[in-house]
């Protein structure tokens, strides 16, 4: 469990190294106006050198940088989407991504666990084969393709779901808690709308969440169904499952209590990492659906050579992974009595 501290240190070292591969000139370029020349330019450079300790050895700079990070100064970002402190950008864009990921995670869990159990119990039957083929198809399809196909079917052809964005702009005109595409206080439109009792906006925000989160979940779902099926088949051959049958416990209880719970153990671990990995998929999906989340901000940061944004985003993803694994460890100890820390 305490492994997460060295992991964090390793993570920051890598991020810092990346920052330095970019070179100090890049850093300077961000703070230096190109119009400055001569003595004034030299003066500003000297000031920045002192500020970022650029005259010190690299490992000393690392600690200065680390202190800055801990103090909450994650640098600045300058993209067409947003210009300002990185922490501020994260506060604006991350909540959107968070709710998208949570929705996707809920869909994944609710669909893949029962389907995995169903396929294992009805092994080699038509329904098992159909689910396996379908899930493999989705697994093989790239995310953006699924997204585009869904848009064509549901938004263009049937016109039942919105194409892009987080909300229908005409609904939020003149709302006291909504400015410049940012809602207050949580920055999550769905929750803010519910907090303010505006159910029309909330429903609209919910409709906007459906397609991105379904797209996000389909690929991962396939992996999880297969994993659940595999572990379930393995557990159903175990002695304790047969013993439960020998005790005369009804078959339903044998499967749902004895077999399923044991089969879930490895699935829970993988589920956590898959969900953390969804954040990688978010980068693509948010672009497809023009959904203003962390992925869209990161894409635009990369396209605009925005070091602050890239570093901040990388560090954030790393932090999320580390926290997820910490959370998983705790969860695992909760469900498996054999594990004690």
């Amino acid at each position: 469990m305490l492994l997460f501290i060295p992991t964090l240190i390793g993570l920051t070292v890598i991020v810092f190294t990346l920052l330095h591969i970019g070179g100090t000139t890049k850093l300077l370029a961000m703070y230096l106006s190109p119009r400055l020349t001569g003595a004034a330019r030299a003066h500003v450079i000297a000031e920045l050198d002192a500020k970022f300790h650029l005259n010190q050895p690299v490992y000393v700079q690392y600690f200065y940088w680390l202190i800055q990070i801990l103090e909450g100064n994650w640098g600045i970002t300058n993209t067409p989407l947003y210009s300002g402190p990185v922490t501020q950008a994260i506060a604006i864009f991350f909540p959107n991504t968070l709710i998208l990921t949570i929705f996707a995670a809920i869909i994944i869990w609710l669909v893949s666990i029962p389907l995995g159990v169903h396929t294992a119990v009805n092994r080699d039957k038509p329904s098992d084969n159909a689910i396996r083929v379908a899930s493999l198809t989705f697994y093989a399809m790239p995310w953006y393709l699924i997204g585009v196909v869904l848009i064509i079917i549901f938004a263009v052809y049937f016109r039942i779901l919105p194409i892009a964005g987080t909300v229908n702009p005409s609904l939020v005109v003149g709302l006291s808690w909504y400015h410049n595409g940012i809602s207050y206080p949580t920055h999550i439109l769905l929750i803010d709308a519910l907090l303010h009792g505006d159910f029309k906006v909330a429903w609209n925000a919910f409709l906007h969440l459906i397609m991105p989160s379904v797209t996000l979940s389909l690929g991962v779902m396939a992996a999880l169904i297969r994993l659940m099926r595999g572990t379930m088949l393995e557990t159903m051959d175990q002695d304790f499952v047969n013993f439960a049958r020998a005790k005369g416990v009804p078959e339903k209880v044998v499967i749902n209590l004895h077999a399923k719970n044991n089969a879930l153990l490895p699935v829970v671990t993988n589920f956590g990492y898959l969900v953390a990995g969804l954040l990688g998929g978010v980068v693509v999906i948010e672009d497809v659906f023009s959904y203003p989340g962390i992925g869209m901000w990161l894409t635009s940061a990369m396209l605009n050579n925005d070091m602050g944004g890239i570093m901040g985003g990388t560090l954030l993803f790393g932090l999320i992974l580390v926290t997820t694994s910490l959370f998983l460890d705790i969860l695992y100890a909760k469900i498996d009595p054999r594990i004690r820390y």
Binding site: A244, N261, I335
Partner: peptide, 8 residues
């Protein structure tokens, strides 16, 4: 060793 369910 394997006849009893480890989670119950």
């Amino acid at each position: 060793m394997t006849t009893l369910n480890p989670l119950l």
